[in-house]
């Protein structure tokens, strides 16, 4: 398929828009369209069926809801059976607090590594890089003990601390690279004007905004979606995140199709909304990160 559809522009330009060009174009679009349908169809199927009555879910699963089949019973069950509102705010708090800490701590560390030459600079850079490839989950047994000792079990802060620690390595790595590119003359000019080192950090920060955005979007999705640490560290009703809440709810209501479809939809919507807003930034970030 690659052979029939790959870049053949120069040939097409020389001979005008030939038949070969059109078949290639059509073939490429056909494959991409088919895969796009394959990638999105299951999600759409869940969304449309969550709005239908139980009978319609089984009788006409592929149809959009009509006035006849429209039924929100699933959503009712979800709101009576689980506090999705609270789970949502827990997730929001954990994600935002972790992101804020990752950005603040990592940008300070990256600034120090990029700006100053001091003993141990290279060693510290390597020490931070160590965590990029090693999954933090492998330390779960000790994290669980540590959080027990700190009395942070079932507190959202335990999650915030773990996510911040695991987000720092990559964030420091990316931000250091960007901060090294900030022209030295700029900082020296500020120094001559009598700016303190802390002031210089605050001047540089807005200059690396795109990198901060990339780091934020990178970390946001895995933190929001994580099941492992909420399950181990914060599984009580008051501290559940939306993913853990949905996982437990789905397990309990496994035979209530309306409720299952409705809770899946409710758990998907926040991240889909975020994705629609940030997709350009996310994809650009992933792409530029790959070229580096």
């Amino acid at each position: 398929m690659i052979a029939t559809s790959n870049n053949a522009q120069p040939a097409a330009q020389r001979t005008g828009k030939s038949w070969g060009h059109w078949t290639k174009l059509l073939g490429t679009h056909a494959v991409l369209l088919a895969y796009t349908i394959f990638a999105t169809f299951p999600i759409i199927l869940i969304l449309i069926n969550s709005l239908k009555s139980r009978r319609a879910i089984f009788k006409t699963p592929y149809a959009l809801p009509t006035t006849e089949t429209w039924d929100l019973i699933g959503y009712q069950t979800v709101f009576e059976g689980a506090s999705f509102g609270r789970y949502f705010f827990n997730s929001l708090f954990v994600t935002l607090a972790s992101l804020a800490l990752i950005l603040f701590l990592s940008s300070m560390a990256a600034h120090a590594l990029a700006e100053y030459r001091f003993r141990g600079n290279v060693f510290l850079g390597l020490f931070f890089a160590l965590g990029i490839m090693i999954p933090i989950r492998l330390g779960t047994v000790s994290i669980l003990r540590l959080m027990k000792d700190l009395n942070l079990i079932d507190s959202p802060w335990s999650l915030v601390l773990v996510y911040t620690a695991s987000g720092i390595p990559l964030a420091v790595f990316i931000l250091t690279q960007f901060m090294e590119q900030v022209p030295r003359a700029l900082k020296d000019a500020a120094r001559i004007d009598g700016a303190s080192e802390y002031r210089i950090y605050s001047l540089i920060l807005p200059l690396v905004r795109p990198a901060l955005g990339t780091v934020a979007v990178f970390n946001m999705i895995p933190i929001w979606n994580d099941l492992w640490f909420p399950l181990v560290l914060a599984s009580s009703e008051k501290s559940k995140t939306i993913i853990l809440g949905a996982q437990i709810f789905l397990g309990q209501y496994v035979n209530d199709w309306n409720a299952v479809l409705a809770s899946l939809t409710l758990a998907m919507i926040p991240i889909i909304v975020l994705y629609v807003i940030f997709s350009r930034q996310l994809i650009r970030g992933l792409t530029s990160g790959a070229i580096k």
Binding site: I143, A165, P169
Partner: peptide
């Protein structure tokens, strides 16, 4: 934060 909550547990 990195040392206490990631490196130390590992």
């Amino acid at each position: 934060v990195y040392t206490v909550f990631m490196i130390y547990p590992l």
